[in-house]
């Protein structure tokens, strides 16, 4: 991997980490939540694109960008503020935070201390045709399962419109 691509990867890595940290730590009503989620989407897809997976990066950009738009909507912020008004402090949340931090430390330690065999990369750059062959022939059942999950998600979104009927 050449130097320019490495610089682009590390720039996207910083953007992704910044977006993930801000979206995790910012308060719910903050106006910086949408830019943080969009930075996460752009940085994550950029890092994936630097790893010679441009088609997967495009899919990631569209999906995470859509999720950022959904999570920054007014109806979600209003629902969160209503829920926050009636919420009480939960010790389970603090335990969960500690467990998440421990998981990160464990994964980072195993990644830094582990050793990997170095090999060459004979693959291409975009790879849409190869991915399409894999997706729609060998792993067609997985694609159908994901499509069914998307259908369920869309039906959940349709619930909003159904609920807002006059």
């Amino acid at each position: 991997m050449d130097v320019l691509l490495a610089i682009a990867f590390y720039f996207c890595a910083g953007l992704t980490l910044l977006g993930a940290l801000l979206s995790a730590l910012l308060p719910g009503g903050s106006r910086w939540r949408a830019p943080a989620l969009l930075a996460l989407a752009a940085g994550g897809s950029g890092a994936i694109a630097c790893l010679s997976a441009v088609f997967a990066a495009l899919v990631t950009l569209v999906c995470l960008g859509g999720a950022a738009v959904l999570l920054s909507g007014r109806s979600v912020i209003a629902a969160a503020s209503r829920e926050r008004a009636s919420a009480d402090a939960a010790w389970l949340a603090q335990v969960g935070g500690v467990v998440a931090a421990g998981l990160f430390v464990l994964l980072a330690y195993s990644a830094v201390r582990g050793d990997f065999v170095h090999g060459s990369y004979p693959g291409g750059w975009f790879g849409a045709a190869a991915l399409g062959r894999v997706l729609f022939t060998r792993d067609a059942i997985a694609v159908q399962a994901v499509a069914f999950t998307v259908l369920i998600g869309l039906s959940g979104l349709a619930g909003i419109g159904w609920n807002r009927r006059p």
């Binding site: 959904l70 999950t149 998307v150 959940g156 979104l157 349709a158």
Partner: peptide
């Protein structure tokens, strides 16, 4: 994306 849509709905 599917889980986010379902959760938001």
């Amino acid at each position: 994306l599917a889980w986010t849509m379902l959760a938001v709905g």
